[in-house]
Amino acid sequence: MATNTNFEWSVIGHYLTAAPILRGLVVTLELTALSMAIGIVLGVLLAVMRLSPNPLVSGLSWIYIWFFRGTPVFVQILFWNFIAALYPTIAFGLPFGGPQAAHLNLTQLITPFVAGVLALGLNEGAYMSEIVRAGILSVDEGQTEAAQSLGMTRLLTMRRIVLPQAMRVIIPPTGNETISMLKTSSLVSAIAVTELLYAAQQIYARTYQTIPLLIVASIWYLAVTTVLSIGQYYVERHFARGARASSASVLQRWWRAISDLRPLVR
């Protein structure tokens, strides 16, 4: 199978570290990092809002999640890309002809890259908020009551007591989301952001070496996913403070198993 000459392994080797591919990889990493940062901050905010006793606040959060989860992210990407057609400029100031404090030219401000980050980040916020909410709900209510009985306000309780303990539940699915985001970011190739996939497409459109270049992109996606998984292990270990079960990574457990076997081999 792998010896099929159509794979053109030499072509793959040539383009794997080619400058356009590496530049695309950097854009993909930027897209992923920025979108996830927006998604996580927004997710925490929306989750805390959703659990607020104030019906207006929790309602707003519900509507946000309903909207952004209910429309395809691909449509959202296209929408943000064309928003400048809808509102070419935005002015901040007093209404009804008052003085203008700022004047934004959306056509210049919303580049395809910005449109991509906005679309992916705002969409991710809706999904992250449900993950964060699940984490918050997993923390025993007694923790909140104990904090409140010590005179901590609701926000302080959330920040110091509930969220740190919710992290154990929040991190694994967030790792999933990050890896998913890495791959979903390839959708912005549709609005001509030169990320990893689009960089590969630009090359094979010229050379017709479609399969080898798709493999080049896949190799990089796999490599980054591997690095992210390792990072997730260390983040998880950090937030396992005070937990009963020790957490050894799969690699560490393999290494221990192999070390145990060694006397037998000798």
Binding site: A146, S149, L150, I161, P164, Q165
Partner: peptide, 24 residues
């Protein structure tokens, strides 16, 4: 919330199930 919290600083409470902060 802030006013209730201030009042609660004067009242200590001990719970049946301890409710110690598990990450501390």
């Amino acid at each position: 919330d802030r006013e209730v919290a201030r009042k609660r600083t004067e009242i200590g409470m001990v719970f049946q199930r301890f409710n110690l902060f598990g990450h501390m």
